[in-house]
Amino acid sequence: MRPFEHVDATSVSDAIALLKAEPDGTIIAGGTDLLDLMKDGLASPRVLINVKTIDGLDRIEADAAGHLIIGPITTLARLAEDARVRQDFLLLSEAISVTASPQLRNMATVAGNVCQRPRCWYYRGTFDCFLKGGNSCLAVGGRSRDSGIFGAAECAAVNPSDLAPALLALGASVVIENAKRRREVPLESFFTAPQKDRPGFTVLGRDEMIVEVKVPKQPVGSRGIYLKAMERKTWSFAQASAAIQLSRAEARVTDVRIILGGVAPVPWRASAAEDVLRGKVPTGELIERVAATATDGAHPLGQNGYKVKLAKALVKRGLAMLVDNSRS
């Protein structure tokens, strides 16, 4: 790890001014991804801007309209345990409960989690792949077991976050600030495929900061579920996951969002599958159809074909459990 200067920011404007003034400056939140990258020489900022010293950035509250407002440095553990979240946005708690490990959840922040870099082992290892300025993606023709089955352009890495698909299923957005302006970006357009020289998965500029995550109020009776498949029972990234939020009136589905994790560079919205279900009564047979549609357009690589079957299975099971009322 290269030496660096360390600054405790005391306000958002401080932090943003520092980001602008220090081209080699980076925000450190929980540090669980950043320090890992720095130890491996994959990031070498000269200035670390600690935003955990800014008052009020760890709030979890509802605004007047009942939307959930989450401060960026809120740790995953606190968010998952929050009474309001458990009451109205249980999907978030569920996704967090299968994220990383207890210690990591105590350290990792909401903003840090959605900004984490890819876990592709070529990227994290000592390989010159496309994402690190090399010529090509080594995973595509190589060890692609963990790679994506959707939307890979030049890089087949997947977005590793569990929180992101859950937030997307709830229609969340992030509020971003830079020296000039403040904007709200729906998460759906926040995530992008990683590109050369921008190995992150987001549209965030390097002098910008996430100052808030906003989760809209969900319709009464709307319920969600998060299912995740991993290499062992815990403390692993998703091989595939499904975040589903389902709203019904009478028996009919009024709205549904199905987001797949671990299969694409962005949390992957299975829009076609949602369309099959919306407005209908979810019978077992319909659910099978929805699940079958969920992986439409998938292009598996040499070793990740299993993800197609897996993603379908997770969608089918998640919907069945939601419909069954076997879950709250």
Binding site: H6, I28, G30, G31, T32, L35, D36, K39, L48, N50, K52, A77, S101, P102, Q103, L104, N106, M107
Partner: peptide, 27 residues
Amino acid sequence: CDRGHCGACTVLVDGIPIYSCLKLAIE
């Protein structure tokens, strides 16, 4: 592991267990 992969460095900070290998002392 020095990377948050094992847990052997677990200590409590303000009563909460964390991995001390991924925590800067200055913080």
